[in-house]
Simulated assay, not measured.
Amino acid sequence: MSLDTLDKLIMIYQRSGLSVSRFASIIGKDRRTLTSWIDKSVCKDPPKEVLESITRFFRYSERVWDQECDKDEFLALLEHIPQSEIKIIDKGYEGGLEYILEKEYDRRFVIHSRFPGPAYRDKIVTFPYKFGNSPQAVALRKRRCEHILDYGFESVEWYSIESLLHFAFSPIGNFYTTSQKIAVLDLMLKTFEDNYNKSLYFFDSQTTKVSGIDTIYMSINPKAHIMFFKIPIDSLIVEITNKMLVYRIHKHFTTPSSAPKHIPKDDAPKILSILKDCIQEGKDIVHFCKNIKRQTPFLPIFSCNLSVELHHLI
């Protein structure tokens, strides 16, 4: 099935999820002009510079505008990420740390795979793994801690509620002692409370379609149009520089209509404080949830992460 140029522009606009104003700014036209193309009140093909703006911003192949490019090929081209925009960073553990420090030097927006993040862990406990104990690795981890914990460093961090509860209450795969858990929470409270440079979120990974996102370290820099995530094999890192994909992933966590259910940043320190009190008192997860119920409106989002057999106890 063949598509004309205007049909293709409309399909790209609809797939983008962008507002009329934002899309119009990308193509260098006003809202009225774009709207006239979308509703086909004007049937004349958009000028060449508009098409070039679209392919440049979304990193599409120029082939999408060819008359010979039918609907099936067109859709395939929209789905395809150019190989040049995906890179495997294979520099070993130390090289991976250096890469992360470089890419997150100015600021960072991170979805963590587990709670707490490496910087807070390494500040409190001895590095728990058998690899990464070279003098260079130790120095790099220390540098990372100092950089991330600096008051002026801009850091947005997302953790799943499941990983938070696992840290606090699970006896499986948990190398933190009670005193270390308290120290970690103290450190994070000191870092995030009353600091406009830091933002902490806890999201529900159980009832929303974010399966897998909460199991890898993902860092997004929308200003630089780059994101990367760590593969837990041989310290590999996958870097993606597809502008539209980076935008879509970032938008998923920053737009109210699409973000997973979460604890807002202003309330996240309160959750840490309640959790710290429970750990200090030797209380279990049921007691913690009862305190959440008494002191916050967030019990429903925590309940989603508990066994249904515990719900009647809260």
Rank of each mutant, 00 (worst) to 15 (best):
P118N: 14
P118Q: 14
R121H: 12
R121C: 12
D122F: 03
D122I: 05
K123R: 14
T126K: 15
T126E: 15
F127E: 03
P128F: 02
P128Q: 04
K130S: 12
G132F: 01
N133C: 07
Q136W: 12
A137M: 04
A139S: 13
A139Q: 13
R141A: 11
R143L: 08
R143S: 10
R144T: 08
R144N: 10
R144V: 07
E146V: 06
E146N: 09
H147W: 02
H147V: 06
L149N: 10
L149S: 08
L149W: 10
Y151R: 15
G152R: 05
G152K: 00
F153G: 01
E154W: 12
S155N: 11
S155W: 10
V156K: 02
Y159A: 06
E162W: 10
L164E: 03
F169Y: 06
S170A: 01
S170N: 00
S170G: 05
P171A: 00
P171H: 05
I172K: 11
I172A: 11
N174S: 00
N174K: 04
F175M: 11
F175R: 06
F175A: 11
F175C: 04
T177S: 03
Q180D: 10
Q180C: 04
Q180V: 04
K181H: 04
V184M: 06
L185C: 02
L185T: 07
L185M: 10
D186A: 05
D186K: 00
D186M: 05
L187T: 15
L187S: 15
M188C: 06
M188F: 01
T191Q: 14
E193Q: 12
N195G: 01
N195Q: 08
Y196H: 14
Y196E: 15
Y196R: 14
N197C: 04
K198Y: 02
L200T: 07
L200E: 09
L200C: 09
L200M: 04
Y201D: 04
D204N: 03
S205R: 05
S205G: 06
Q206L: 10
T207E: 10
T208S: 13
K209Y: 13
V210K: 00
S211K: 14
G212T: 08
I213Y: 14
I213R: 13
I213L: 15
I213A: 13
D214L: 07
D214W: 07
T215Y: 09
Y217C: 08
S219F: 03
S219G: 07
I220N: 01
P222A: 01
K223G: 13
A224Q: 12
A224V: 13
H225T: 15
H225N: 15
I226F: 12
I226Y: 12
M227H: 08
F228A: 03
K230C: 12
K230W: 13
K230E: 14
I233F: 15
I233L: 15
I233N: 13
I233S: 15
D234W: 05
D234A: 11
S235I: 10
S235W: 09
L236R: 09
I237G: 05
I237L: 09
E239N: 01
E239I: 08
E239V: 04
I240V: 11
T241Q: 02
N242D: 11
K243G: 02
K243D: 14
R248N: 09
R248W: 07
R248S: 09
R248D: 02
H250E: 09
K251T: 14
H252P: 07
F253S: 05
F253E: 01
F253H: 06
T254R: 04
T254Y: 07
T255I: 10
